[in-house]
Design a protein around this nucleic acid. Structure first.
Length: 935
DNA sequence: CCACTGGAAATAGCA
DNA sequence: CATGCTATTTCCAGT
């Protein structure tokens, strides 16, 4: 990056602010090649040097920090990331090549990706000129910063954005600098671009952008851009104008006001740091903005549009016509076409800028951090490593009603006590402040990953004591909060709210396989990246207890937060205390045992102590198990039921043989135990029965969680290497973990990752050029066949014990506890199987998690699949029918509609789906796609 | 005036 | 295809 003399008026401008002002997205095509580890590596090697040298990076957010700093002093920034096209184009730029390693293949043709260009105030007018992505951007201005955006899509999936998310996400763009997408750490693989619907990017592009011929692209349904922005008085902030702003305006779907990210707050955030800016500067910036990346945001947006979005229509989305004023900024035709960019009116934003109040807090400047690569958000990280221990001292309340873009903020997530969650890093004695990252993660039974339907929302205001920054990493908004030594590395999280994205917007994104319906639980995920003297970086992560985000669920569904017992002898009879919410006088507690196929093998209603009933607690008598002579522990589950469809999630419980010790500390190293550990996120226990074969219950499962014991004080934790199996344990599965907030955070799972700066990026995917071969895969659906815990965290990460090794490399060295097994026969792109031991590689049957009562979807326990098809089940077994297609293994959850997409031919709903593990040719148990109307 | 909240009507999606 | 429910979103109004 280069710094230029600051114009007088720009001197005080914060980088972030700046970015916000000038961001242009170009090209929205995401080239898969970018995800190629090999290429990434190459690139990293080639370009990283520049980055590290020129950028003072914050540990947590190297990119952000560096840019931020630089920008502050220099209005003109030229950054070109990832994309060749973009990079190198800005001859004028002093530091034209700010490369995010891994983004672009060497010598590979330029990839068309959305770019963000930032231009200094003075140049803004011109920066607008752009060239189409492939051609290579034509640097109009020296001072233009170009950031290649992942697809400029939605929050999560670069390749596909939901209208809402993509279009609106101002934040994301703002964070352009913060955008980690380009960095290796991002998991390019994170979201498989499986486009179930086969939507083309163009199709997906944000329709809204296709702004009407009208004056301002931003035109939202509401009519005037301005209106869009602020139906709720947000207009003022609508700073969305900026990248995000676009979104707002752009996406008809979006409610006028807010963009998901673009929540009004964004502006504030920026403002906070940028308050000093003068109006003129702001105006200029605004002017410069014109068509921005907002359009890109729309990329990946499903054609499907809401009724409410009048403007949404294919034609519009596909084609954007330059609009008046913004026209100046317009992109080439291609850009429009591709990105569907909509120009928005500057005016509308101006006011917003001016109105924003300054933020008192001055973002700490972290030390320079050379390694831009940070672990992807879907990688599992441990909460402690060596002397460090990241803990959630005060857990958030179990319920927090998330707000929609169309609503005003619903405030920050609170703690049960009425205060706010508190996170603290123990064991850190340095004087350098660190950055605590926060994002909204999933709370289901699968590996923790960014939640597709929720985003963290920055809260600011008088009542907020904690400063924060918004950044975008892999389409996920990340709140960055300073962790200061003077505060004992403790942060009160009173600046984080939760934004709900419309299901319809997200589900149609390319590659998105998760469904939003009834997927309303989230966890706050905290991360910290600690630089080590040796140049490595230790990344820790702690996830909160699950948080129910829907209004209705919060009000009606019973929620079990704690249970006094995890297991008990088959004889039962013991009373167990359940703590939670929404327990009613008529609440029932049902114990169930499910077979592998999801059918209930046994179900019984437990007696509830009527006298002790409270809305938040309930005493239930453990019913005797159906078989009093079990020789091994039998995992079952129970749930609280308030009526039809009003059930809590399944809670785990284990029946023990009457004479057997209750706990085993070492999980058996078999498939099941691995799986159990693997899938154990908070609620995993609840669903476990459903998704796993129960026939051979493993007592170990319970035991495996034992390690979760709270660690109030800093202490050494077992490193991944030492106890890989435990690494992935998530916080809360068992009461013991639940009881103490600190405890929970302890096991957020994953292993600590150590980065070796020398590698320049997190992608040290060395030996194998092909990502798929490496097994590095996206977590999204991530699976974990063999060892969930060993999710390919950092490609180049290694256990703390052997930081330099490349665990992710197939055939990992002996020094690494982690082994990656890869089979040539394994479908390309299939996830690598990381094993904790040699045994893991054995063929494991693919299991399908299924919840009969649920939607037309099925869960795949492993990512290693697969071919699937229909077959008929005869009396003696199964007769395979036709192979219907091959599924991308990155997704764990498949909707019927998705399967149909992959199918080479129509299939009957009466068919049974069969999943085969490609590598081993094994067949998973057969599962009806849908229990009710079987496919 | 704003940022929240709590409620609940309006919609959507399923069964 | 209509109907009944649920779940999701959007609105409203009060603090």
């Amino acid at each position: 990056m280069s710094l230029l003399p600051d114009p007088p008026y720009l001197q005080d401008v914060d980088f972030p602010y700046f970015l916000k002002l000038k961001i242009e997205l170009k090209g929205h095509h995401f080239d898969p090649r970018c995800r190629d580890p090999a290429r990434l590596t190459e690139e990293a090697s080639s370009y990283m040097p520049n980055v590290s040298l020129s950028l003072p990076l914050g540990m947590a957010n190297p990119c952000l920090v560096s840019q931020y700093h630089n920008l502050q002093s220099s209005p003109v920034i030229s950054v070109s990331s990832c994309h060749q096209a973009s990079y190198g184009h800005h001859e004028n730029n002093i530091a034209p090549n700010y490369y995010f390693p891994g983004l672009r293949p060497n010598g590979a043709p330029p990839l068309e990706r959305p770019r963000i260009e930032i231009t200094s105030y003075g140049q803004m007018p011109e920066e607008e000129v752009e060239e189409s992505g492939t051609m290579g951007p034509v640097a109009k201005r020296v001072n233009i910063v170009t950031l290649t955006l992942p697809s400029a899509d939605g929050y999560r999936d670069p390749s596909s954005l939901s209208p809402a998310s993509s279009c609106n996400s101002e934040a994301s763009f703002e964070s352009g600098f913060y955008n980690y997408e380009n960095s290796p750490q991002n998991s390019p693989w994170q979201s498989p671009c499986v486009s179930p619907k086969g939507l083309s990017s163009s199709m997906l592009s944000c329709p809204p952008h296709g702004h009407a011929p009208g004056p301002s692209p931003r035109h939202s349904p509401s009519t005037s851009p301005n209106d869009d922005i602020g139906s709720h008085g947000k207009r003022k902030y609508s700073f969305n104008g900026t990248p995000y702003g676009h979104a707002a305006g752009i996406s008809p779907n979006h409610s006028p006001g807010a963009s998901p990210q673009g929540s009004p707050r964004l502006e504030e955030s920026w403002l906070g740091t940028t308050n000093q800016y003068t109006n003129s500067a702001i105006v200029a910036a605004i002017n410069a903005l014109s068509t921005d990346g907002l359009h890109d945001l729309g990329d990946g947006v499903p054609n499907k549009s809401r009724k409410t979005s009048v403007e949404h229509n294919a034609s519009m989305s596909l084609k954007v016509e330059p609009i008046n004023d913004d026209a100046g900024t317009e992109l080439g035709q291609e850009d429009y076409t591709n990105a569907n960019r909509m120009p928005f009116k500057k005016e509308s934003y101006c006011s917003g800028f001016l109105d924003v109040p300054p933020h008192p807090y001055s973002w700490p400047k972290p030390k320079s951090y050379l390694s831009p690569s940070l672990p992807a958000l879907d990688w599992q990280l441990p909460s402690c490593s060596g002397p460090y221990n990241l803990q959630i001292e005060v857990q958030p309340k179990s319920h927090h009603r998330a707000h929609y873009e169309t609503e005003g903020s619903r405030g920050a997530v609170k703690a049960l006590s009425g205060g706010h969650p508190v996170v603290q890093l123990y064991g850190y004695m340095e004087s350098e402040p660190l950055t605590l990252q926060l994002f909204i993660g999933t709370a289901d039974d699968r590996l923790l990953r960014p939640h597709a339907f929720y985003q963290v929302h920055r809260i600011t205001g008088k009542t907020v004591s904690t400063a924060s920054h918004e950044a975008l990493q892999s389409n996920t908004k990340v709140l960055e909060i300073p962790l200061l030594p003077e505060n004992n590395m403790r942060a009160i999280i009173d600046c984080a709210g939760i934004l709900k994205l419309r299901n319809s917007d997200i589900e149609l994104r390319k590659g998105e396989t998760d469904i939003g319906r009834k997927n309303t639980r989230v966890r706050m995920v905290f991360r910290v990246h600690i630089n080590q003297p040796n140049g490595r970086t230790v990344s820790l992560q702690a996830a909160s207890n699950p948080i129910e985000c829907s209004q209705r669920s919060a009000q009606e569904l019973p929620l079990v937060e704690k249970q006094s017992l995890d297991s008990y002898p088959a004889s039962g009879g013991k009373r167990m205390l359940l703590s939670g919410h929404n327990f009613l006088p008529e609440s029932k507690v049902m114990f169930v045992e499910k077979a592998q196929d999801g059918h209930h093998v046994w179900e019984t209603e437990a007696n509830v102590d009527k006298d002790s009933r409270k809305s938040t607690s309930l005493v239930v008598e453990i019913p005797p198990y159906r078989n009093q002579r079990i020789s091994s522990a039998v995992p079952v589950s129970f749930y609280v039921c308030n009526g039809k469809r009003k059930r809590s999630q399944y809670q785990r419980f284990t029946y023990l043989p009457c004479n057997v010790p209750m706990i085993k500390t070492e999980p058996a190293d078999d498939y099941e135990s691995r799986m159990s550990i693997h899938t154990n996120p908070y609620f995993s226990q609840q669903r476990l029965p459903t998704m796993m074969p129960l026939e051979d219950p493993e007592p170990c499962m319970v035991a495996s969680y034992a390690p979760c014991a709270p660690r109030p004080t800093p202490m050494l934790c077992s490193t991944p290497s030492s106890s890989p199996k435990l690494q992935d344990l998530s916080p809360v599965p068992y009461p013991k973990c639940l009881s103490n907030s600190p405890t929970q955070s302890t096991m957020s799972g994953g292993m600590a990752s150590m980065q070796d700066p020398s590698s320049h990026h997190g992608l040290a995917l060395p030996s194998s050029p092909d990502p798929s071969s490496l097994g590095i895969h996206p977590p999204q659906g991530s699976p974990h066949l063999g060892s969930p815990s060993y999710h390919p965290l950092y490609p180049n990460s290694s256990p703390s014990s052997s930081p330099t090794s490349h665990p992710s490399t197939p055939g990992a060295t002996a020094e690494s506890p982690y082994l990656v097994t890869f089979s040539s026969t394994q479908p390309r792109g299939s996830p690598p199987t990381l094993l904790a031991d040699d045994h893991a590689s054995s063929a494991l049957p693919v299991t399908i998690k299924q919840e009969p009562q649920e939607l037309d979807q099925m869960y795949l326990d492993d990512g290693v699949l697969l071919k699937w098809g229909t077959c008929q089940q005869g009396a003696n077994g199964v007769i395979m029918g036709k192979t219907m297609g091959t599924l991308p293994r990155d997704s764990l959850v498949y909707h019927l509609s998705v399967l149909q997409t992959f199918s080479t031919q129509p299939f009957s709903k009466a068919a049974i789906v069969m999943v085969t593990e490609g590598r081993l040719g094994q067949r998973s148990p057969l599962h009806p796609l849908h229990s009710k109307n079987n496919v």
